[in-house]
């Protein structure tokens, strides 16, 4: 039997994977290939099957809550073995959980027990234009999925400011310069975007953390900020400061500040705030330099 082609869809929860799957299942080019879906049905890490478009395609589900990658492997291989035995399948679409490592899934497809029944055609990573920068600094799988992708879909572009979309695209370009990007909304991906993708096998090791240039730095202290020095730190970091959010104690009182795509906003502090505490997500700046830049904004009393 000829190998079953596989389309792998990765992306963090809320990036729009289910919407994209539903869009794909409406495309004649996809339906004509007799697709089956392999999805994680349960838990917020996976997709909700109830939201999947009904149709003439089988859905295989992995019910493991996706907590343990190794345990998931068992269920995954069982489902793949079942699909491998079917002669009526032309395309397998796999929806990975938001915390999956792409190379793990590629390894599942290469298990000797499956004897070459599957050929990964492409893996597509769906990225949420509104939230990717925030998640990427904390969840290493969000970044490793991008780095392993053959194509990147920047979704929800209609919900993000143009500057935010630009910032996400730049970050993606840094993380994976080879993958073509498609900016879209509501998972609208044309079939020819997928057809043009070439799968290049992921050889890199799983990330052990967010890549070094991407850092989340927490600043907490009881001091009062020098407003000019803080503004200077933010200016100095420039577009390398991807996001900043939290409370800062100024001489006039506690304030909530936010920086997104070089836009600074400031408003009244939240009632539960007790002192200076904010998180800065930076790109291409050593962590200690970020800490030093902000330390200058909080002089000793």
């Amino acid at each position: 039997m000829a190998p079953i082609h596989v389309l792998l869809v990765t992306g963090y929860l809320g990036a729009g994977k289910t919407t994209l799957l539903n869009h794909l299942l409406a495309l004649p080019e996809v339906l004509s290939r007799r697709p089956v879906l392999l999805v994680n049905e349960f838990g917020s890490l996976g997709i909700d099957r109830q939201l999947l478009r009904p149709g003439d395609h089988a859905v295989f589900e992995i019910n493991k809550g996706s907590l343990f990658c190794i345990c998931t492997k068992t269920s995954f291989l069982e489902a793949l073995a079942t699909i491998a035995g079917r002669a009526d399948v032309g395309l397998l679409i796999i929806e990975a959980t938001g915390v999956s490592e792409t190379r793990d899934i590629e390894a599942f497809l290469d298990e000797p027990t499956l004897a070459g029944r599957f050929r990964l055609q492409a893996n597509v990573c769906v990225v949420d234009a509104t939230g990717f920068v925030k998640v990427a600094a904390f969840l290493k799988a969000a970044v490793s999925q991008v780095r392993a992708a053959d194509g990147l879909v920047v979704n929800k572009a209609d919900l993000a400011a143009e500057a935010d979309v630009h910032q996400v695209r730049q970050l993606l370009q840094h993380l994976n310069p080879e993958a073509p990007q498609l900016v879209t909304r509501q998972g609208q991906v044309p079939a020819d975007f997928l057809d043009r993708l070439d799968h290049r096998r992921s050889r890199e090791e799983a990330l052990s953390a967010a890549p070094a240039p991407l850092a989340a730095v927490s600043i907490r202290n009881d001091r009062t900020a020098n407003r000019e020095a803080l503004a200077d730190a933010i200016r100095t970091l420039g577009d390398r400061l991807l996001r900043l959010k939290g409370h800062v104690r100024f001489p006039e009182g506690l304030r909530f500040i936010e920086v997104a795509a070089e836009r600074y906003t400031e408003r009244k502090a939240l009632p539960e705030a007790r002192g200076t505490a904010f998180v800065a997500i930076t790109w291409a700046v050593p962590r200690h330099e970020v800490q030093a830049a902000f330390a200058r904004a909080f002089p000793s009393p």
Binding site: Y12, S44, K134, F138, A216
Partner: peptide
């Protein structure tokens, strides 16, 4: 909390 925890590390770490 579900995977909101990862977004929460930035949006609402406290």
């Amino acid at each position: 909390l579900g995977t909101d925890i990862f977004m929460g590390m930035f949006d609402s770490p406290d």
